[in-house]
Design a protein around this nucleic acid. Sequence first.
DNA 1: GAATATATGATCCATTTGGATTATTTGCTT
DNA 2: AAGCAAATAATCCAAATGGATCATATATTC
Lengths: 224, 224
Amino acid sequence: MSLKIAIVDDKYVNRNIIKNKLLAYGHFEIVLMAENGSDFLQKMKTLTPEERPEVALIDLEMPELDGVDTIAAATTLYPNIKYVVLTIFDDEDKIFKAIKAGAFGYLLKDENAENIGDMLWQMHSSGAGPISPGIAHKILQLIQNNNLTIVKKDIANEKILFELTDRETEILKLLVKGLSYKEIGQELSISPNTAKKHVINIYQKLHVNTRIQALHLAQEKGLL
Amino acid sequence: MSLKIAIVDDKYVNRNIIKNKLLAYGHFEIVLMAENGSDFLQKMKTLTPEERPEVALIDLEMPELDGVDTIAAATTLYPNIKYVVLTIFDDEDKIFKAIKAGAFGYLLKDENAENIGDMLWQMHSSGAGPISPGIAHKILQLIQNNNLTIVKKDIANEKILFELTDRETEILKLLVKGLSYKEIGQELSISPNTAKKHVINIYQKLHVNTRIQALHLAQEKGLL
DNA sequence: GAATATATGATCCATTTGGATTATTTGCTT
DNA sequence: AAGCAAATAATCCAAATGGATCATATATTC
């Protein structure tokens, strides 16, 4: 069985390159080519359900109706079709908007065409949306930088994997605030030597060996 | 040049399968094998910087110190190493936590080993973290289901109150990550003395005199 | 009562850090 | 061409930090 594909891109050259590469790959049948979102939606109306594409490759920057809006509209009209962004843009904002609009995958044009064929075919077999490595990487970084945060249903059990004692936690808090041993000692009315001893014990439990490392780990693990 | 790899997995069989497959693939050199996070961190201490792995493949469910905590600790200790999760678990929570902890990639063990080699090698050339298609797909779905939402950082604070030069900002970033002068020097291919000179200039501009203070100020003022 | 964990404190030592000073090179600006 | 800001780098020094070891007191638990 071959996979029925639609190509939506405002550049004639692009449409043809993609078309030829996919045809050369085999497995694919190009059933629709459009030069923008409006064009795509118009042409879709002329097709019977059997003729419709199973996958639509959609560029993002297009006149008339851009990729994001096209996907948003098309997902409600034809929810069974898999919409895959195929573009040169890799900025966070576009990625995020396209996904929210309902994109099933996100491929970069600088993938060589063979790769694109591979990824589309793999999507077909595995059911997982195809995503270019560079895009996936960007999303990971968004998450790491706290620009993407998970909306938690239950914020429960933050188990204390690094078992610090109460005193150690108390000292850790002062440590990450930037206090020296001397200052910690003053604050807690103990000898700076003791403060230091605690800190070193903390380091051993956390497997770190500088204040900054302890701070990062404490923040990540919510030890404060 | 071959890529130096560490394998952290509690099952002997798994370690060996991964090792053999990667060795058969070529390009890879296994420099460390550990059976849990503590073991890994212990063994890392015995290695000189030159001997250290460039990539650490880390399983998630392990006794002693699990994968997420291991990555959290290791990223602060050895920020230059790329930590790639290699596991059978694909539930959202684990994925998300691992990424937050600092995972650079997330691979599923059901990938055939050739694929894993491919993805690791591609990571090495492209610099993008390797992510199994199924995982990337899950993340997209999280976003679509509004379980992951983007948080726009307030970039209005872009005013350069403390006028750091580009180089100084660059160095500040490394400094707050926890790198020593020596490490900053290595990272930027300059003398540790120069790194130090920059840091002290930064301190003067920020009116602080320790790393932790600089970190706090930088975070408050959004200098990063 | 003995064993254990925790908190306290000191001492010694090597390394790192913070600070001041001086100097050279590079790339712009006037 | 002269002037200036950055970036580079080295040297000297004092203070702080990180690490190891030993010692003591005080609870708690078995």
